[in-house]
């Protein structure tokens, strides 16, 4: 992970991927910008039509690709542009989080929030809070080590399997 080490104040800067819906949170994040609110620059937003679009694989992929934390945010309950998408997301997320917990991933690395188009301040606060929390947890390594074996874009020499499992 190449970071601009000279400017880093902390020992570790986490990578955070945010999956947000187009109608509420993306617009809310825009509002944080137009309001010139400041937050931690660690987050990379991926825009989707709705949180209902987010399936497990996207979240797993984010961890696999090197994210230290994942944030999912959409419209408040009953405010979904598509009526029900965020309810599906919430239900799926609750189950998924338990699964992650079960396999030993610290569930503080994956957070869910409602941020409406009017809540720019909430977004700014949320990003900073999540960044700080994940920063404290440190780098997320257990998945990365495994994923480096199969990661197609890295073009790494595969390490012998025994070394990893040992």
């Amino acid at each position: 992970m190449s970071q601009h080490k000279e400017t880093i104040k902390h020992d570790f800067e986490p990578n955070i991927v945010a999956f947000v819906c187009n109608w509420c949170t993306y617009t809310g994040a825009d509002l944080a910008g137009t309001s010139r609110l400041k937050y931690e620059p660690n987050v990379r937003i991926i825009r989707l039509p709705c949180t209902g679009r987010i399936d497990y694989n996207l979240l797993l992929k984010a961890f696999e690709s090197g994210a230290d934390g994942v944030l999912v945010s959409g419209c408040h309950p009953n405010d979904c542009h598509y009526n029900l998408g965020n309810f599906h997301a919430r239900r799926r997320f609750t189950v998924f989080r338990q699964l992650l917990d079960f396999v030993g991933i610290d569930i503080r690395r994956i957070q869910f929030a409602w941020v409406s188009a009017a809540e720019g301040a909430k977004w700014a606060q949320l990003v900073t809070q999540v960044t700080n929390e994940v920063r404290e947890l440190g780098p997320f390594t257990n998945y990365k080590r495994i994923s480096e074996l199969s990661f197609p874009y890295k073009e790494l020499e595969p390490e012998p399997l025994e070394e990893v499992t040992a």
Binding site: A32, R36, K38, Y39, P41, A124
Partner: peptide, 14 residues
């Protein structure tokens, strides 16, 4: 702009 230059201060990180 909205999600980068307006919300961050550190030029290198931004």
């Amino acid at each position: 702009r909205e999600q980068c230059s307006w919300v961050h201060e550190d030029k290198v990180l931004a």
